[in-house]
Amino acid sequence: MMVDALQGLLQGLFGSLFPLVWTVLKIVLIIAPLLLAVAYLTFWERKVIGWMQVRIGPNRVGPWGLIQPIADGLKLLLKEVVIPTGSDKSVFLLAPMFAFAPALAAWAVIPFNDTLVLANVNASLLYIMSITSIGVYGIILSGWASNSKYAFLGGMRSAAQMISYEVAMGLALVVVLMVSNSLNLGDIVKGQGRGYFAEHGLGFLSWNWLPLLPMFVVYLVAIVAETNRAPFDLAEGESEIVGFHVEYSGMAFAVFFLAEYANMILVSTLTSTLFLGGWLSPVGFLPDGILWLFLKISAVLFVFLWIRATFPRYRYDQIMRLGWKVFIPLCLIWLVVVGTWMMSPLNIWK
């Protein structure tokens, strides 16, 4: 195999430093395609929304507009990063990093297939929850450090929204880990490959989305709110309300933008892994593989864009009501229902 040959070559080259080099290489292999995917997700979003609104979308830069995201990135890179007077400079520049870094760090435990994972940790689901919960600092700090009332209020609003939906999201995940009997993402996927339907060649009916349908819906809505995407995108509702990053420009703003799209890809991957069977094939006669995971991620990402093109923006009190008064009680009730189900003779997760 080529991988073995490369491994041998590097082992000879670096000696005792080899594990470090090998891990860094694997990290680069995850991060580089991810950043490319982030760039082309912005392009795909503009295209999809364009088509849904009977427009063409970006089509001038390069063939079919394909170089558009590169041009956008270059433009933002060349712009000046304006730091407002009276702002806390170090915190002001730290905030975008706080937003972006968790979206990258979480990929350490994502399994791509049954062997391909950077760190096969036992508590990987917990790790992802705790790492992604750090992302809220980017919002709250950028709001405070800008030394602007509008940014501050926007930051408070977005942070409160993220914290509220994290509760519902966490409760939905508790149900998933209850039926999977594991916190390991790889084991959660493998658990979805078992069951009555999987044995009869209809694997997609054995995945968690069907038996846990209410939790799947709660999770889908919660991740949209968690990533501050439409219809919950109060952070960038520029026409009626201002967000936490009004004072940011140039690359500092671009990092917030990158963080949003990297988070979208991350939560889509999590949805695919937790509810849609990860790398498992939907039907028995096709082999499992990493391609299925990418297909599922793309499908969930498409739903994100579809939602954005379809729904009007929610009002803030409606968002909070949905999170606290609808989703959390629903999750708590479903938690008890699934617990009872698992204890009854009808348990399907043995």
Partner: peptide
């Protein structure tokens, strides 16, 4: 103590300190 370590980040960094910052700010 991986569980305690992750729980510390999840609870204190992810929730308690955010609310704390809210108040301090």
């Amino acid at each position: 103590a991986e569980f305690l370590a992750i729980a510390l980040v999840l609870v204190y960094v992810g929730a308690v300190m955010v609310l704390f910052l809210f108040v301090v700010m």
